[in-house]
Design a protein around this nucleic acid. Structure first.
Lengths: 183, 183
DNA sequence: CCTAGCATGTAACCAGTTACATGATTCA
DNA sequence: TGAATCATGTAACTGGTTACATGCTAGG
């Protein structure tokens, strides 16, 4: 259901194609909400049937016709209802890396350390991404569109990403120390 | 796929029914891997067909026969292969609460603050849970089974849960301050 | 020459949720 | 009296992934 709201959210900033939406998702919500084109296209189609968006077909040569989607008043209303609705329970997360670690007591010291170091590398890369690419993307959009209020929210969420990665890396540091001492 | 490894992981500690497995999941992996009974039962059945586990049927009166599953050598091997295999990319997370916040720039100051406070409450409750219920559950199992090596891993993962929640709460604190000042 | 970007989709499949179905025992 | 615990499952559905299909243009 949240994919529909993701799409409505971006379309509330302006009309766009499914392809454009995918790029915005990849550049901003990617790390707390992602979707593939093969999920986006049929979803937009159903949202059109439900009257939440409207498609304007722009003929093109040499490539498929462009479908530019615009949010309808009904779509705006649905988005606002969802935004206003209080948060439910925390949504359960799944993290295969933690699961593997949880059951890794049977492995030897070196194998566990290898997992932890690899894990740390991945999180360092992501931290760098939040600080560089994500930060500049947000700034760029704020400058281009003058969405200052929206920009405050985007930036807050980006900061959570940064702090999350920092905390993760710190914990892994401690975990490595623990294994080196106790295992 | 990871559900199969979750079940194999717990079954490597000893034979159990699907019902027992569900309780272990709820008490320990719940926050990074969860599953419902209606997913666990058919999965165990298919794992039996694939030779990863074996069921011993224990007739009971007044309730369905108990099926106690035991991990087979093939199951043990599959579990070890998975544990040894290096971590792939970070698995994409989905968090509807962050998504809502991301698009909340159109809401007024009070509505945003309400979301943030509610969010903080939920995370405080979870932090308390990790510190009390989860911690005592782990200690209890370590004492009962003498799985000290395994216990170190369980405790490490629990500590991540605790640090994650602390970081989340801190970020929300900052976010509340930012909205109060800038919005 | 090959990769990336533009631009759309369908079909088969897998994972996971929700609702349904049964039924005894224990505890507040 | 009603909820929780024990103990199993099935069926319909929703959400999401993977593979397939088409085909032009621009740039390194």
């Amino acid at each position: 259901m949240s994919l529909r709201f993701t799409l409505l959210g971006f379309l509330s900033y302006g009309p766009m194609t499914g392809y454009d939406l995918k790029k915005h998702i990849d550049n901003s919500t990617q790390f707390f909400w992602h979707a593939s084109l093969s999920q986006i296209y049929p979803t937009l189609k159903r949202m059109d049937e439900d009257g939440l968006v409207e498609a304007a077909v722009i003929p093109q040569e040499g490539r498929p016709d462009k479908k530019v989607y615009t949010i309808t008043p009904a779509g705006q209303a649905a988005l606002m209802d969802w935004l206003a609705e209080p948060l439910g329970e925390l949504s359960p997360q799944k993290d295969p890396a933690l699961l593997k670690l949880f059951f890794s007591g049977v492995l030897n010291r070196e194998a566990i350390l290898a997992h932890l170091c690899r894990h740390q590398e991945l999180h360092r890369a992501r931290l760098a991404h939040y600080r560089k690419e994500t930060a500049s993307y947000i700034e760029q959009i704020i400058v281009a569109t003058d969405f200052t209020r929206e920009g405050i929210m985007w930036e807050l969420v980006r900061q959570w990403g940064e702090q999350y990665e920092q905390a993760y890396i710190q914990w892994l540091e401690q975990a490595i120390a623990t294994i080196e001492e106790e295992f």
